[in-house]
Amino acid sequence: MSTSPALSVLDLVPVRTSQTSAQAVAASLALAARADALGFRRYWFAEHHNMPAVASTTPPVLSAAAAARTSRIRIGSGGVMLPNHSPLVVAEQFAALEALAPGRIDLGIGRAPGSDPVITQLLRMSGTTSDVERFPEHVRDITRLVGAEGATVQFTSGGTYDVHATPAATGAPEVWLLGSSDYSAQLAASLGLPYVFANHFSGEGLQRALELYRSQYQPSPQHPEPRTFLTANAIAAPTAAEAEERALPQLRSMARLRTNKPMQPLETVEQAQAERLDGMAQTIVDGMRAKWFVGTGDEVATALRAFAQRWGVDEVMISPIAGSYEGEPMDAAPGRVQTLELLAAALGRD
C-alpha cells in the first residue's frame, strides 16, 4: 500500500504585478487542467474579496469554468463564506454545478468574512442570512436543500412548503465544513460532516481541532466515520534555491497584511529580492516560512508524507504559492505548475 497521501489543490487565483484578472484566471484554469491530468484528487477555489493579489472572489463561477476544462478531478469551494450569502442561493449554485459535473462537486463552507470589515458589511446587507449566529442552522439548510428530497419550510401559522435547490436532482455536492478554530471542528462533529482544518493560515490549534472533531464526531448516514484532511502552503522547484526565491513574493505579501500595510498585487521574484524588510516584517516572514513546505520535489514530498502520517490523514490539499519571475508569461503560472508536477512525480514513486 502506498504511504503517500493523495494530493489536492487550493487556489486563491493569485494576481501579480501588471497581471490582469483575465490573465490570472487563465493561469489558474490551466493549472486546474494540469492537476486533473496529474491525478490530483480535488481542486478548490477560496473566497476572498477586495484584495489586489487575489482574484478568487466567486468560487461557484470559477468552479464552473474549471469543471468545463477537466474530466476527473473533483471541483469546488474552499470555501464559500456562508454568512456572505443566502443559503438557498449557495445551494442552487452548487446543485447546478452538480448537474454540470455529476459526482465531481464539493461544497466547502466557512464562516469567516473573507475580507475587511467594510467589504464584509457590503456583502452582508442581506438581512438575517448574514447573521453569523445562525451559521449552524444555515449549514443544515444547505445540506437539505441540495439533496433530492429538498427541504420543508414550516410556517408559524401552520402548513408547510417544499423547497428544492434544483427541480430534479439525481445527486448532490459533497458538503465539507472548513475552519481554523475549535468552533468549526465541534460543529462539523455534531453535524456528522467532513471537516478541513485550514492549516495553511497559521497552523495554530491544529492538534486540538482534530482531537475535538474526532472525539466528538456524531455519525451521519452519509458519513458514518469522521473524515478530514489538511491544507498546507507548498512550493517545489528543481533546486531548493529556486523554491526559496519563488516563496518570497507570497511571504512578503503576508507580512504586509499582518503589519497593516496597504495591499498590492504580488511582487515578482526580482521585485521581492530588491527590497529589504524591516525587523518586524522579517520576523513574520521567518515564522511563516518555518511552517511552509518549500524545497525540491523530493524534499517537499518527504515532508508532506511525514506531515500526513503525523496527523493521521490520507490527503493533503496544497496551496501552490510559487511566485513568478519577470520574464514568465502573464497568462500562465510556471512555478505553480512545476510544483504540482514535481510533487506528483515524487509522491507517485511510492
Rank of each mutant, 00 (worst) to 15 (best):
M1W: 14
S4N: 09
S4I: 00
A6C: 09
L12E: 11
V15L: 12
A26D: 12
A27M: 05
H48T: 03
M51Y: 02
V54S: 08
S56L: 00
T57E: 08
S63P: 00
R69G: 00
P83K: 06
H85F: 12
S86W: 01
V89L: 13
L97R: 07
A101C: 04
L107D: 02
G110H: 01
A112H: 02
A112W: 01
G114V: 01
R124N: 08
E133Y: 10
R134I: 02
R134L: 14
F135T: 11
V139N: 10
I142S: 05
V153L: 15
S157Q: 11
Y161H: 15
A165F: 05
A168R: 13
E174D: 12
Y183I: 05
Q186S: 15
H200E: 06
L206K: 05
R208T: 12
L212F: 03
Q216F: 04
R227N: 12
A237E: 08
A240L: 10
A240H: 14
S253P: 00
A255R: 04
P262M: 07
Q271R: 05
Q273G: 05
D278R: 02
G279M: 06
D286I: 03
D286A: 14
R289P: 00
G295W: 01
T296F: 05
D298F: 05
R310V: 03
W311S: 07
V316Y: 04
S319G: 10
G327C: 09
G327W: 10
T339N: 05
E341G: 00
L342W: 04
A345G: 08
D350Y: 07
